[in-house]
């Protein structure tokens, strides 16, 4: 169990200092964009904003696992004491987290981000990327109730984007979309960004129908479905690629959480919720499409390496045509 107050303070300190909740090398966050050949912002072009979520998810997973390792279920009180005495210095923590597995996770994230860029181009868009402005959205600070710190980060991100002449932003995940579209306007005076998820800006009729045929099910992220109204768009994109969608029990606005948000505080409870969700999904199809890196990580963890399930980000499934 992680003390939410200490964790929150650490994440907030890092976010306000480095721009990201962990003091990672900015190259980890932005490196994919050079590979994908995205240009610097130009007038009139929308800018892809990752909010660092895809790239940081492997670190978050590793952090949760690290915390878990300090907790032996047979000696809970001792485990808890050890966990709360974790080396919470961010730099030391980061060193512990930088494992080959995390590096692989970052590569995978880069691959997904590159696929999304290709998908956008395929649909006739010419997105740019604002290297120095692609900071963490701060959404976790908002979720933890740290409104002041969240406001600071929101103002900073807004300023950086506006300084680069950005007017239109394309977000890639539900948390960043919700932050920039629904929350930032409440915390930033004169907010002037038009924010849409990549799923919303892609016209499915423009993307090629060649792709992997077959049947999939889709896990709607809570924020897309209930706050951002993004439900039909990913289905249309999947259908355009020739995939048949089997709806799981609880989909659209009734979607069921992957358990992700409490994985740090109550990992076993979080895991149980992920298992419940996974069983709903796999009854619909063994190929599960996710739209958020956190959902993907949680459902994968719940699947525990089962070979009969494929849990793929939408971009992994349709972005490589």
């Amino acid at each position: 169990m992680v003390d939410p107050l200490r964790l929150g303070r650490m994440l907030a300190d890092n976010t306000l200092r480095h721009g990201y909740p962990l003091p990672v090398d900015p190259q980890v966050i932005t490196g994919w964009a050079a590979e994908a050949g995205l240009p610097q912002p130009r007038p009139g072009r929308p800018v892809v904003f990752t909010g660092a979520l895809y790239q940081l998810t492997p670190y978050i997973e590793a952090l949760v696992e690290l915390v878990g390792r300090f907790r032996d279920p047979r000696i809970p009180s001792l485990g808890l004491r050890l966990a709360s005495s974790l080396p919470w210095s961010s730099e030391l923590l980061l060193t512990l987290l930088e494992t080959p597995e995390v590096a692989r996770g970052v590569r995978r994230a880069w691959g997904i981000l590159g696929s999304i860029a290709r998908l956008l181009r395929e649909a006739g868009m010419r997105p740019a990327y604002a290297w120095e402005a692609d900071l963490y959205s701060g959404i976790m600070l908002y979720d933890l109730g740290m409104d002041e710190e969240f406001a600071q980060q929101a103002q900073r991100v807004h300023k950086l984007l506006r300084e680069r002449g950005v007017e239109k932003v394309i977000t890639l995940d539900p948390h960043t979309t919700h932050a920039l579209r629904d929350l930032y306007p409440r915390y930033v005076d004169g907010y002037g960004l038009e924010v849409q998820s990549y799923l919303e800006v892609i016209d499915p009729s423009l993307i090629s129908t060649k792709g992997e045929a077959g049947e999939v099910t889709i896990h709607d992220p809570c924020l897309y479905a209930r706050k951002a109204g993004v439900v039909e768009q990913p289905r249309r994109i999947l259908a355009a690629r020739g995939l048949r969608i089997r709806e799981p029990q609880m989909s659209g606005v009734n979607t069921y959480c992957c358990g992700g948000p409490i994985e740090g505080l109550a990992p076993r409870l979080s895991r149980r919720i992920a298992e419940t969700r996974l069983s709903q999904l796999e009854r619909a199809s063994k190929t599960i499409v996710t739209l958020c890196p956190i959902c993907n990580a949680n459902l994968r963890a719940a699947a525990g390496g089962r070979g009969d399930l494929r849990i793929l980000d939408l971009a992994e499934l349709v972005g490589n045509a």
């Binding site: 979720d143 109730g145 209930r226 069921y256 992700g260 409490i262 919720i273």
Partner: peptide, 29 residues
Amino acid sequence: SFYCLLCGRCSQVCPVSIPLDDIIRWHRT
């Protein structure tokens, strides 16, 4: 309140549209 997922299912199904998850998040602030 920190054990809440803020997933919003509660607010979605409430017959009288109480923004339950917003109120829970407010407790964190």
